[in-house]
Design a protein around this nucleic acid. Sequence first.
DNA 1: CCTTGAAATTGACGTAACGTCAAGGTGTAG
DNA 2: CTACACCTTGACGTTACGTCAATTTCAAGG
Lengths: 256, 256
Amino acid sequence: MSYTIKQLSQLAGVSGRTLRFYDKIDLLKPESINASGYRIYGPKQVDRLQQILFFRELKFSLKEIKDILSATDFNLVEALTEQHKKLSEEKERLDQLIATVEKTLASQKGETFMTDQEKFAGFKKKMLDQNEQTYGKEIREKYGDEAVKQFNQQFANMGKEDYEATVVIQKAMFKNLKKALERNDPASSYAQKAADLHRQWLSYFWPKGTYSKKAHAGLAQMYVDDPRFAKYYEKNVAEGAAKMLRDAVRIYTSQS
Amino acid sequence: MSYTIKQLSQLAGVSGRTLRFYDKIDLLKPESINASGYRIYGPKQVDRLQQILFFRELKFSLKEIKDILSATDFNLVEALTEQHKKLSEEKERLDQLIATVEKTLASQKGETFMTDQEKFAGFKKKMLDQNEQTYGKEIREKYGDEAVKQFNQQFANMGKEDYEATVVIQKAMFKNLKKALERNDPASSYAQKAADLHRQWLSYFWPKGTYSKKAHAGLAQMYVDDPRFAKYYEKNVAEGAAKMLRDAVRIYTSQS
DNA sequence: CCTTGAAATTGACGTAACGTCAAGGTGTAG
DNA sequence: CTACACCTTGACGTTACGTCAATTTCAAGG
């Protein structure tokens, strides 16, 4: 079987320009050139092209591919190992970048948020009311009025950075919760991770030392009972998110 | 404070060429140009450059950066969100590539391995002897001679692809084991993952249905007792690897 | 046989973000 | 006055092709 440039290009899913370019840089020469100057490719070229495309996928440069395919004693394993290292480093860097973007996003959102005094004040008030209403009594019983006062000040005094941290943590929690929902398993590692992140998240709103498993489980239960919270979770994660979190937290708080 | 091109370039850690380029494309114009035609940069330019470099780090193109910095109403949050998506996709792709490289490496190593008939034969024999010696009796007792025969044939008949799979699995296991060793915790998720991978790995060598927690734990114990195995693990992971695996497997096999 | 449209050719410029000379002017310290 | 470091504006090189442009060839239909 022999192919014209277009036939081969369609066969391999590359452009004709690419094949001409590969010809020019001596990466893939046609088998022959007919009387009219047309490039004619044979099965050997098809194979070689496949290999070229494979290595190209792995982000080898065309020059490197040429070396790999030409030198008969080229150590493929070594080249692959090196490429693996490169790719891993690139991945590391990407992970870093993504983290930075996320931080910047959280920061930006936080800034917008903190700048907008009215909204922020409103949000804070809502949170405080909610907390007071739901946990005021229990905390008051357990730790006295002083703790409640401290508790209420906790969020009011939360700085921008802390707020940003809560955004990041909550986001991570949502992610895990989503995966847990897909598996529909509150005992799964995702669900348990979500429960743990939820505990961390809470630590920003609850004064130090006030965390208890009972309170944690109670709060999760409230997420299910209170339609405002349930709705918030449904919107940010998926249907049944509040229930999943509650179940996950139940398991989480019942352990060790 | 005003700076010449070199001063600014050193301050910001970029080349002079870069600053001239940014001038040319109207990304960063100097504050003024002195009588001799020198570019003079002021504090505003320093700030702007910082911002440019920040976004450049996040892999925005210079054109995009220009838009971000010029349009006053540019929605930064949106841009960041989009960038986050892009980066995540790139990461996904990279993960894929890395997996492919790893597979290719395993395959390549496997090929080298399978091609080298002598070594392969030697390895098989060693494995078979080892297995026969260590588990022959137990398996024979439990499943009879037929199982032993099957067991011995299992590895002998293992194809190239299966072999490659074992390489990949073992590598993943080593990785987790290493992390577990760093944390020195056989109950950690890394250690447990390693134990699970070890079970998977075993499935390639043990005939179907012969897996038992007891046998698994026993094998792990042998890794510690038999200096050849212990050494193998030390070489491929780190000191104490065999013991860590044994402890991890103990916990793994004692659960549920 | 002629026409026509698809497919082939080479050539040349464009892309992104600079690196790297080259040729020549400027500033300043000794 | 003379080095010598620093400044300027070109202009070409890099990577892996995309995208015209001008021209020639092939295969099918009228």
